[in-house]
């Protein structure tokens, strides 16, 4: 018995905001008289953290504390249109719509603050702590809540903004495939280290080292969540998952989580990752989107590491112990 170790690498790009058909998303923002801003959307949070990142983008553009920005979403009666949360479009599309809406709302907020402070709006800054003040004289300031109250009760103005992001529909030239199918490309490289049991074909992923380029890590801890969870899914795809274990044979399809195989908490790999940022010109604060791409580079990196470890090239997913062992047997037979 031997445990054979090997390394493999894979590098990928990922098209974010993939779109051929025009897929707009809208955002509305308004100030309440309680010192908060509400961002209204109809977009959906799948757990990736859309609500948190959208609040950050809104707060950044408005220049107010993130704790005073609420995201009200996923209701078609109250929120403006959004195509949905898929295709790594959430951060990119909705983020851009929020920036547009927040700029408009900010401009009204500064106009009202300017009236209150009797200065030119162009001379005003937000401090990110809930105040608007005059450039160079932080003591000459007014609280955002007071601006909101003044707007409503004194000037009869709404502090609000409307935003939309749309990439026009791109048709494909059927003869050549000419098209404009994405908004930005994110990048990843994974180096996998594996161990193959030469008697059973079992593969253990010891370590995944990942480098990602994602435009901008909007919230590093949440980018980390996508990285760790995505790389786990990639490892799972590489070695375990399928609804048809003997594809194209339809038999033996798993019906529950006992039969549908995925690595459990006892099977996870050591992970080390780094993020590089190359802001996208068309992304909100340069963001490209990270959600989908993280699962991709680990798959081939693991496949290549298995080859490196034991000389077996498995070119069908998932790479089950059976496929590896059949490969090892074939190598042995060829050598004999």
């Amino acid at each position: 018995m031997a445990k054979l170790k090997g390394h493999g690498i894979a590098a990928v790009n990922y098209p974010t905001g993939m779109n051929l058909g025009g897929d707009p998303s809208q955002a509305l923002i308004h100030a309440t008289t309680t010192g908060s801003f509400v961002i209204t959307l109809s977009s959906v949070d799948l757990g990736q953290g859309l609500k948190t990142v959208m609040a950050q983008i809104g707060a950044e553009t408005l220049g107010v504390p993130v704790g005073t920005v609420w995201v009200d979403t996923a209701d078609t009666d109250t929120g403006p249109h959004c195509m949905g949360t898929f295709a790594s479009r959430g951060t990119h599309r909705i983020g851009n719509a929020i920036i547009m809406a927040a700029k408009e709302a900010r401009s009204v907020m500064l106009d009202v603050a300017a009236e209150e402070l009797e200065v030119d709006p162009a001379d005003l800054l937000t401090d990110g702590k809930g105040n608007v003040h005059v450039k160079g004289s932080p003591e000459k300031s007014v609280a955002v809540i007071n601006v909101a109250l003044a707007a409503h009760f004194k000037y009869g103005k709404t502090i609000s903004g409307r935003g939309i992001f749309m990439k026009p529909k791109s048709d494909v030239v059927p003869e050549t495939g000419e098209m404009n199918p994405d908004s930005a490309q994110a990048h990843a490289c994974t180096v996998a280290e594996v161990e193959v049991d030469d008697e059973t074909g079992e593969v253990a992923v010891l370590k995944l080292t990942n480098a990602y380029e994602i435009g901008r890590a909007m919230n590093p801890a949440m980018a980390h969540q996508q990285i760790v969870g995505g790389a786990w899914m990639g490892m799972s795809h590489a070695l375990y998952e399928t609804t048809e274990p003997y594809y194209p044979d339809r038999a033996h399809g798993p019906l529950d989580f006992s039969e549908y195989l995925m690595p459990g908490p006892g099977d996870i790999a050591v992970m080390e990752s780094a993020i590089i940022e190359r802001p996208a010109a068309n992304g909100p604060y340069g963001a490209k989107g990270i959600g989908e791409m993280t699962a991709n580079s680990p798959i081939a990196a693991i496949a290549n590491a298995i080859f490196d470890a034991c000389g077996v090239r498995v070119d069908s997913m998932p790479i089950t112990p059976e496929k590896v062992l059949r490969g090892l047997d074939a190598l042995k037979n060829a050598a004999e």
Binding site: V228, W232, G264, P265
Partner: peptide, 17 residues
């Protein structure tokens, strides 16, 4: 800890956190 949560599936986090 790994043993204790081995009957619980998480599809998002990769368990580490």
């Amino acid at each position: 800890v790994v043993r204790a949560i081995s009957g619980n599936v998480c599809r998002c986090t990769g368990y580490e956190a």
